[in-house]
Amino acid sequence: MLEIRNLTKTYGDKKAVDNLSLHIKPGEICAFIGHNGAGKTTTLKSACGILRFDEGEILINCTSIKTDPVACKKQLAYIPDNPDMYEFMTGIKYLNFIADVFAVDKAERQYKIDKYAEMFALKDDLGGQIAGYSHGMKQKLALISALIHSPKLILMDEPFVGLDPVSTHMLKELMRRMCDEGAAIFFSTHVLDVAEKLCDHVAIIRKGQLVVEGTMESVRGDASLEQVFLELEEK
């Protein structure tokens, strides 16, 4: 579903991502772990077409994000770490706007908005302006907008930040269910416990380079993910 081949992205003289390759198959949840500034966000932004990269290739369901970004974007959803949205819109208008652009059928969008808004306890607030939303509410709205067009690949940057415990639980359940239905999820996180329990796959990045990648079991072995991560950081 997501294939990153030899991705390199530089900012001025600094290599933010250096020759990174990664393959995430349909049905997999992959956690992307690394210290601050390791290159996680750059990789995610490159994968969803926000950032142009210098070298390498990114394929979404076998389509290149470089040559056919529109076709790729139709299949994916991206949630940034700080979801700044159109504050002049109400929650419902924003969701409707996203559904319009992704050409979601009217009945289907109505059903999904109701379903996910109920699930994340945001339904009552959908009539309010986004400007008045808290960080957590914005995060929930971004999540609903990402789910509304049933993406095959979801890229998330720190999706659990700002969510209340119930919503965090709901999101984890939902992520698992979506992957069981064939979608792929690639998300960055600093919450290693969640990554360990939720993910089938893990990728650890350090200073722009992928240091470890594989199934959770193979990477972790007998230790915890936290121990593995700390050991790698010390090297």
Partner: peptide, 30 residues
């Protein structure tokens, strides 16, 4: 606290637009 008291959202009819129309309406609304 900014903004006036917002009403509880009760659902209702949603108007569907084409992507072009949606983007244009968004700009107008802004």
């Amino acid at each position: 606290k900014k903004g006036s008291k917002t009403k509880k959202y009760k659902g209702g009819k949603i108007k569907a637009r084409s992507p072009r129309e949606a983007l244009f309406t968004k700009e107008l609304r802004r």
